[in-house]
């Protein structure tokens, strides 16, 4: 179990949060081919290391936000607003 720093409420138990999968996925335009559409819908980076992902403080303030988390150590390297763009890997 880990704690997550909600940008609004501060550090809370993992159990209060809902995981929303990889962040920064950009929906392509309507005219893209099937392959690009599938890449957007289904294909993921799934890295062993730093992962940029969305969480929601579901049993709290309800805010959606982004975090950068290490998928091996579970260390949370950065918490940032849902509207921010994906950080450079180094600065995470």
């Amino acid at each position: 179990m880990f704690q997550i720093e909600c940008p609004y409420c501060g550090a809370r138990d993992e159990r209060e949060f809902h995981f929303g999968g990889e962040g920064h996925l950009v929906r392509p335009g309507e005219s893209v081919d099937d392959e690009s559409w599938a890449q957007y819908l289904y294909f993921r980076d799934n890295p062993k290391g730093v992962h940029f992902e969305q969480w929601c403080h579901r049993f709290g303030c309800g805010t959606w936000f982004n975090i950068a988390r290490d998928t091996v150590t579970h260390e949370i390297l950065r918490v940032y607003p849902i509207t921010d763009s994906r950080p450079e890997r180094k600065s995470a």
Partner: peptide, 13 residues
């Protein structure tokens, strides 16, 4: 467990 992980250990939750 409901999040990505390669840690081979589950969450106590």
């Amino acid at each position: 467990d409901m999040h990505h992980s390669y840690a081979q250990k589950g969450s106590v939750l």
